[in-house]
Computed example of a mutant assay.
Amino acid sequence: MYFPFLRGKQNELLALKNLKDAEILSDSIFPVIEPVKYSKQLVNTLKGLLSEGHNMILIMNPSVGTFIEELNDNEQQMDEILKIMSHPSVTIGYHLNSEAALEELPQLVERCSRTLADTAIFHNNQINLDIYEKIFGEFEARYNFIPDQKPLKRRFRNKNGVIFRDAFIKRTPNAEYLNYEVEWFSSDHLDFEDEEFLGFSDYSIVGKEYAESGFGAKAIAIHVIYPDESNNLWIRHFVSDSNENRADQAGKFGEALSKFVEWYDKTESVLINTQGLNELLDCAKNGNYPGLGMLKRYSIKHHLELIGNMLVKV
Rank of each mutant, 00 (worst) to 15 (best):
I272H: 01
E262A: 08
F253M: 00
K40S: 13
I205R: 15
G207M: 07
A100S: 08
D130P: 12
L257S: 00
F185G: 05
H302R: 05
T267L: 13
N72V: 05
D73T: 11
Q41V: 09
L42A: 04
Y210E: 05
P4C: 00
K218Q: 10
N97S: 14
N232T: 08
W234T: 10
A284L: 09
I59W: 02
A219L: 05
L277I: 05
I307Q: 06
G251K: 01
E305Q: 10
G137E: 00
Q126V: 13
A284P: 14
V239L: 01
G65I: 02
L71G: 06
G137H: 14
V182Q: 12
V36E: 01
N278W: 08
P62E: 01
E80S: 06
L96D: 03
L6D: 05
R114Y: 03
I33G: 01
K17Q: 09
N97E: 04
P4F: 00
I68G: 15
F136Q: 13
P173K: 13
M294K: 10
D202S: 07
L306A: 07
H123A: 01
N273L: 07
I225P: 11
C283P: 04
L280Q: 04
R154H: 11
E140P: 12
M78C: 14
E209V: 13
A256V: 05
P147W: 02
F30P: 10
L198R: 04
M310G: 07
Y210H: 13
L6V: 03
W263Y: 11
G293R: 03
K159L: 06
K134C: 04
E212Q: 05
A219V: 00
L46F: 14
K170E: 07
F5R: 02
F192A: 08
Q107H: 15
F215C: 07
D148T: 12
L280C: 01
N231V: 06
P147S: 00
K170R: 15
D282I: 10
D79S: 14
T115E: 11
N125F: 12
M60H: 14
E70R: 13
K153A: 10
H123Y: 05
L152G: 06
Y226A: 05
L19I: 02
A247E: 05
N11Y: 13
R165W: 03
C112I: 03
G93I: 00
I81M: 12
G93P: 14
